[in-house]
Nucleic acid binder design. Structure first.
Lengths: 303, 303
DNA sequence: TGAGATCATACCTAAGGAGTATCGAGAAGG
DNA sequence: CCTTCTCGATACTCCTTAGGTATGATCTCA
């Protein structure tokens, strides 16, 4: 049996007349007669009763008509859904984020993407950098977001944004009286550092900056992520260097101050990674969303 | 697209290797390659990623695999169900019966039929003789049961059984003391007759017999069916001639007596009618059940 | 009885599915 | 590092079979 047989059968059943059905199918009558005979022979069942006035469905034929319509609808739906999936409009996208970096940019990106592709299910996973790389390799996730990534053979790193560094201070902290602060002034103030774990990371950036400015940081506490760090600032544990996006966190008693040093050194990146050679149309659509978002932003990227 | 495409696609998806899939499908590798390409081209979607080790489904491919399996299962189910319908094992059978003649034989026939064809839905309709003939012509019913049918061009009459006549009497009735009764003895005893309405019918048979035996029946009451007639006998309205099968009705105060006259005249038929040329396999199966039932009965048919 | 439908049959053409042979690209192994 | 193996893709041929035209067989209806 063939989908053609079903199409022809439905036409004949609806027209109750082979000639008219043939016209409707844009073929001539004899081949249609033969296709119907063939179908009946294959099923071993009479689907029609031939009358002098045309073709009349048998009971079995009526049943088969229902089924045939069902099948044809299912086929149509399958092609349509598959095409949508092929255009990245239907399916699932697994994204990994790190600790607390979900602060500003990433929620906006996700929102954009979901508006454009409402039928793609976005699943978020929290992973460390090493876990993300492993998960991308094993295809458990399609995209991972992280900072300070180092080049790898099988993984593409796409810079999404660069952010400046701010100092988070308690309102009562002496430096909080200054509207701007030079990095060197941070010397001797107890400092909260993050994240613990995977190297190289934001923590190394901060320590490096301290050494460049001629001092060893006085470590008050090491914590897992920016949220915890800022929470400790609120409790008076010390100061904490954070990326700009952390200002979304408004803790009572915490103020953020800009650093006056020339920016090149004071920038930290946010990038995403994905498997080199990944052809997934959903990934492609997501990366397109990222690009579009960047070009819509004024102070943004360097692709 | 074609069911062949689906079959091939599923095989390749399952084997993850065109060569192996081709072997499984009993074709060679190149045509399979082309069919898959064709399918992808028609859908406008890459279903597989070609790797040096074989074929790997894309996300769209995975979706399409599900759909394809669905469709194939549905096709299989459709052919199977249609074949069963063609053998009269699946579907619906509309049967008409008259008034109260459902007394003995018909329930047994229906029970037999339902045991053999559990997936055929039997729908019973109560109709008069004329309604049955009309309904058979219009195909609202497939079979009708009735008595004393007269030949028609477009309808087949199949005799199902012949039954003798009995007299239903009240226990107190003088004739009830005799173990057997001659028909002529019924003279002058008030008689309940049925059915009213459509002619010719059982009532005419009874009146005919009275006249043959030299008397006009003394009509006490005309009623619609045997059940009502016997109920009136119980209430002392008179005697009532009924077919044998009415003995299933056991009313308090009612006894049945055999008539001693030679039988040929005292027989009444039960027949079924169906449309001449009706090819329905369900009808055929039902008629087969009737035949089998008759040949299983000792004192039965004359086909 | 003849005209008009309707489905079935006979025969031809050509589209396309399947086969064989072969290529090209990676992966594996000495 | 080069050979060999595996896998999918391509080129070309063959033959099945869907579709076309012409015609036949029935039945209805005027």
């Amino acid at each position: 049996m063939d989908l053609r047989h079903l199409r022809y059968f439905v036409a004949v059943a609806e027209e109750e007349n082979i000639g008219r059905a043939a016209t409707r199918l844009h073929i001539s009558q004899p081949p249609l007669t033969r296709q119907i005979q063939q179908l009946e022979e294959e099923l071993g069942v009479a689907l029609f009763i031939r009358t002098p006035r045309g073709m009349e469905l048998t009971q079995a034929g009526e049943l088969f008509l229902e089924e045939a319509r069902n099948i044809r609808a299912l086929v149509e739906q399958a092609t349509e859904r598959t095409q949508r999936a092929g255009q990245g409009k239907l399916g699932r996208l697994d994204i990994a984020i790190f600790g607390s970096a979900i602060l500003d940019l990433i929620p906006k990106l996700l929102l954009n993407f979901r508006n454009r592709h409402p039928d793609v299910k976005v699943v978020l996973h929290t992973m460390t950098k090493a876990e993300q790389i492993e998960a991308v390799r094993q295809r458990r996730i399609s995209v991972g977001f992280n900072r300070m990534l180092e080049p790898l053979d099988d993984i593409v790193i796409k810079q999404v944004a660069t952010e400046g560094l701010l100092v988070a201070l308690h309102d009562d902290h002496p430096l909080a009286r200054q509207s701007v602060i030079r990095f060197a002034e941070l010397k001797d103030h107890p400092m909260i550092l993050f994240p613990t774990g995977a190297r190289p990371s934001f923590i190394d950036k901060v320590i490096g900056l301290c050494i460049e400015n001629g001092f060893q940081p006085q470590i008050s506490q090491e914590v897992g992520d920016a949220v915890t760090g800022v929470a400790l600032v609120a409790s008076g544990f010390g100061i904490c260097l954070v990326p700009e996006s952390a200002t979304t966190l408004q803790f009572p008693g915490v103020t953020y101050r800009r650093l006056t040093d020339p920016p090149p050194n004071l920038l930290v990146d946010l990038s995403c990674i994905y498997r080199k050679g990944d052809q997934s149309p959903i990934l492609a659509a997501f990366l397109r969303t990222v690009d579009d978002y960047q070009s819509a932003q004024p102070g943004a990227p360097k692709t």
